[in-house]
């Protein structure tokens, strides 16, 4: 299986664990889409934005002495965007509806970010 297919398989597994997820993307640290699972056709844009949010989040965390950045959460009144670092190699970004169990989403997403780090 190619690396791309392995990454796709991991994202499908994540989608299986959390079927409510809408968009799931893996972006390179500089904002290029690596793999995506979703319906919107917005992957390229989302990848760039995930990298921007993550880069800025890291800076805010250091400037305001928050320690290391753990996650980015953007909360809309209909859904959340959540992003995690995949080690130094990329960013996992996902959107989930407002009614989701956020605790569970966070747990699973972090677990899958670790899995992705091994493959990426």
């Amino acid at each position: 299986m190619s690396k791309q297919e392995q990454l796709e398989a991991i994202l499908s597994e994540l989608k299986g664990a959390l079927p409510e997820l809408k968009e799931i993307i893996v972006a390179s640290p500089d904002g290029l889409p690596v793999v995506q699972l979703g319906e919107g056709g917005i992957a390229a844009r989302l990848a760039a934005m995930a990298a921007t949010a993550h880069g800025l989040g890291k800076r805010i965390a250091t400037t305001t002495h928050l320690g290391d950045l753990v996650e980015i959460v953007i909360r809309g009144n209909q859904a959340y965007f959540i992003a995690y670092a995949i080690g130094e190699k990329g960013i996992l970004g996902l959107t989930t509806p407002a009614g989701s169990n956020l605790g569970l989403v966070r747990l699973e997403a972090q677990e899958y970010a670790r899995k992705l780090a091994e493959t990426l």
């Binding site: 500089d30 290029l32 880069g55």
Partner: peptide, 10 residues
Amino acid sequence: VVDTDALASE
């Protein structure tokens, strides 16, 4: 200067 550098993949 505050910067937000990331590793370039291109």
